[in-house]
């Protein structure tokens, strides 16, 4: 049996090789890697090699555990854009179960300096069926953005919310 808990600890090791090895093993686990969803999102801000394996694990794992949403929500505002991007992505995958993350997502949509993070936040707000005033305002503003992709994603999310 794979020692998932041990690997979660390894992701936080002070030794880069240990962290990289743990991330690589999670990248081979498929949905079983969800147990370390938040830790893997944090690893996206690590050294490039470890980060690559963390991204590979996150791409394949599917939706994270619902109880990871608070941790993920806190990572949305990470100064490392890849961390924020993947936090938004996993929250979006949780769909309506992550609705209580909507205001943090809205905040990121308004204030993140990274376009990819803002775009994923706009996408995620639609996925989680956001309905708060802050979320609707943020999406409405984003739907008028000069960034064509952000504009399209925000408009699509607003459309989802109306449906």
């Amino acid at each position: 049996m794979v020692d998932v808990e041990g690997l979660r600890i390894d992701l936080k090791s002070s030794d880069l090789a240990t962290r990289t090895s743990a991330a690589e093993q999670f990248s081979q686990m498929g949905s079983a890697a969800t147990a370390a969803a938040a830790e893997l999102v944090q690893t996206c801000g690590d050294d490039e090699t470890a980060s690559q394996f963390a991204v590979a694990a996150l791409e394949e794992m599917g939706p994270p555990p619902v109880d990871s949403r608070e941790h993920l929500s806190a990572l949305l505002s990470s100064p490392q854009s890849l961390v924020g991007y993947w936090a938004a992505t996993l929250i979006g995958r949780l769909k309506i179960a992550a609705k209580d993350c909507q205001d943090n997502l809205a905040s990121v949509l308004v204030s993140s300096s990274n376009p990819a993070v803002r775009e994923r936040a706009a996408w995620a707000l639609g996925e989680i069926r956001a309905d708060s005033e802050a979320a609707i305002q943020a999406l409405t503003k984003a739907s008028q953005s000069s960034n064509a992709r952000l504009q399209r994603l925000a408009a699509a999310s607003l459309e989802q919310l109306r449906a």
């Binding site: 990289t20 690589e24 990248s27 090699t49 690559q52 394996f53 590979a56």
Partner: peptide, 11 residues
């Protein structure tokens, strides 16, 4: 053929 060689790099 098509082959996605997951994280095909140094490792």
């Amino acid at each position: 053929a098509s082959f996605n060689i997951q994280v095909f790099g140094e490792s």
